[in-house]
């Protein structure tokens, strides 16, 4: 197995390569405006650092968000085209699941929230029982509006850090890391766990309004 994992749903443009037993290489760059520029060079770097060739890839795992649309689409389009051209499967993973997985929390430590920045004063969020078990979400809301449901819960991720007053405590990791995404995906593949289709979790409809009635050009 050689699994290529990447995620573009947060400011991190993050890539990792997993050989079935461990993460063998990775490349993470933080720049919320450059997913399109940085992702494919990152993939090439990860392959070169591991001394592996793209033709050896057996699987792709891609973060399907939720996340800001333009960057998110770069990841999903790249995954779909690579999967198509290499003839290998593309497994979608909720980005918040990978963030939660990276916390390594157990059920004994109690439930928690993973949250990323959704802009427009909102967060993308989900509630977890432990690092592998999502209980609620993903959703997109103002942090203050979900405070009742998540009150008293520790929170992880840059979205939580932005609205720290809405959560019991805030801790890292800040962004998702493809190494965690790769570990989670390999674990799911081995255990027969479920994946999502490579479709973006937009969670919002496009901001477009049907134009109002005809407005005369000439005054009455």
């Amino acid at each position: 197995m050689l699994l290529l994992a990447f995620d573009t749903a947060t400011p991190a443009v993050t890539v990792a390569l997993h050989d079935g037993s461990r993460v063998v290489s990775g490349c993470t760059q933080i720049d919320a405006r450059r997913h399109g520029e940085l992702l494919v060079p990152g993939i090439v770097t990860a392959l070169a650092d591991a001394g592996r060739d793209r033709a050896e890839l057996s699987d792709i795992a891609v973060g399907v968000g939720p996340g800001p649309y333009t960057g998110l689409r770069v990841g999903l389009m790249t995954a779909r085209a690579l999967g198509d051209a290499l003839g290998i499967p593309v497994h979608g993973v909720c980005t918040l699941d990978a963030l939660a997985y990276a916390t390594g929390r157990t059920a004994d430590q109690g439930p928690f929230v993973a949250a990323t920045d959704a802009r427009r004063k909102e967060v993308y969020w989900a509630r977890y029982a432990d690092a592998r078990t999502r209980l609620e979400g993903p959703g997109v809301d103002r942090a203050a509006d979900i405070a009742d449901g998540v009150a008293g819960l520790p929170a992880f991720g840059a979205g939580a850090a932005l609205y720290a007053e809405s959560f019991a405590s805030v801790a890292g990791p800040e962004h998702v890391d493809a190494a965690a995404l790769a570990e989670l995906a390999v674990e799911r593949l081995k255990n027969g766990g479920e994946f999502l289709p490579p479709e973006p979790l937009y969670l919002r409809r496009p901001d477009a309004k049907v134009p109002a009635n005809y407005k005369p050009v000439t005054p009455n």
């Binding site: 494919v40 793209r54 689409r73 790249t78 779909r80 085209a81 051209a85």
Partner: peptide
């Protein structure tokens, strides 16, 4: 952005 991402992926693959 979508087309450029796809083109890069096809070129690399």
């Amino acid at each position: 952005q979508v087309g450029v991402a796809a083109a890069k992926a096809y070129a690399v693959a």
